[in-house]
């Protein structure tokens, strides 16, 4: 359980995290979503005591990170893949970290295997690709078999196979009852991984809800209609609360009507349909809608 209360971080005159309160519960994957510069990484750095809050607190299982007796065994952290000395081999990096908590060599070999790094374990990290560095960072986070995982952009730089690996790993760790908190700016990725989503924009929480509620925030549900008779059918469907967009010469995107109603209208007007597919609102749309509001809110504030 991670709990932030009134958490604030200012760097000079810039407020990176602005009076943020949230909690991350065990047994589920909590996604931390927001555009670059929204304050996700800063919040995570505050969580593990790398930065000192300007105000408020953030605790892990009720205690400040710095007060934990065995931090690596309670919290696994991936802040950025580059937190590794480039002149050292992957295995020596992990051995050095493990030694601080007297974690044995067997566990080091275990996480190397888990992250699929066996073939490069003895190579110097300086030559690693972004994806391999990311895997090493995740291996380091898992060293202490921690109950809480804080992963900043874990899929960054991973190939598709790696992305699926992280997704399954996060879901598996949460299913074991651990607290999994991961950030991303990839909304589509979050839709597939997270149970709960906290959306951050300009250092403030915009939304904090289960993933399906966030999806439901997407305005309206669109239906794609492909027909050789697009011009005529478009005119037929037109009504005040219905939006019709001509995406391609023979493709319409209709919002405000269900696929069934469009199908019936087509049949009764003898319009040939080649495709009729409802588009579920994507997290992407929801997210853009949410952050757009946030930007407008700020613009209004400035104009005052």
């Amino acid at each position: 359980m991670i709990e932030a209360t009134g958490l604030t971080k200012r760097y000079g005159s810039k407020t990176a995290v602005d009076n943020v309160t949230f909690s991350v519960k065990p047994g589920q994957v909590t996604g931390f979503l927001g555009p670059n510069g929204a304050g996700k990484s800063t919040t995570m750095r505050l969580a593990v005591g790398l930065d000192r809050p300007s105000g408020g607190t953030i605790t892990i299982n009720g205690r400040r990170y710095a007060d934990l007796k065995a931090p690596l065994r309670e919290v696994g952290v991936l802040l950025d893949a580059k937190a590794v000395h480039t002149g050292r081999s992957a295995i020596n990096h992990l051995r050095a970290l493990a030694a601080t908590h007297s974690i044995g060599r067997a566990r080091v070999d275990e996480v190397i295997a888990l992250a699929g790094l066996e073939s490069v374990a003895r190579k110097r990290v300086g030559g690693f690709s972004l994806g391999m560095g990311q895997r090493l960072g995740i291996a380091a986070a898992l060293l202490g078999d921690p109950a809480t995982l804080i992963l900043d952009e874990p899929v960054n730089g991973l190939d598709p196979e790696g992305v699926i690996w992280v997704r399954n790993l996060a879901r598996f760790l949460a299913s074991e009852g651990r607290t999994v908190f991961l950030s991303s700016h990839l909304m589509s990725e979050m839709a597939q991984t997270a149970d709960h989503i906290i959306v951050l924009g300009r250092g403030r929480i915009i939304a904090d809800a289960p993933v399906n509620e966030i999806l439901a925030l997407a305005t309206g549900t669109a239906v794609l209609v492909r027909t050789p008779d697009a011009e005529r059918f478009g005119a037929l469907l037109a009504a005040p609360d219905i939006t019709i967009a001509h995406r391609e010469p023979h493709l319409l995107q209709v919002t405000g009507l269900s696929a069934a109603m469009i199908g019936e209208l087509a049949a009764s007007n003898c319009v040939v349909l080649h495709e009729l597919s409802p588009q579920s609102g994507s997290l992407e749309d929801a997210y853009l809608a949410l952050t757009k509001d946030e930007v407008e809110y700020h613009a209004g504030e400035v104009a005052r």
Binding site: Q28, K69, A70, E74, T100, H101, I103, D145
Partner: peptide, 16 residues
């Protein structure tokens, strides 16, 4: 979830 979380309290050696 609360019942499963008790399994994951820190175990093993700490900082020394």
């Amino acid at each position: 979830t609360t019942t499963t979380t008790t399994r994951y309290t820190a175990h093993g050696s700490g900082l020394s």
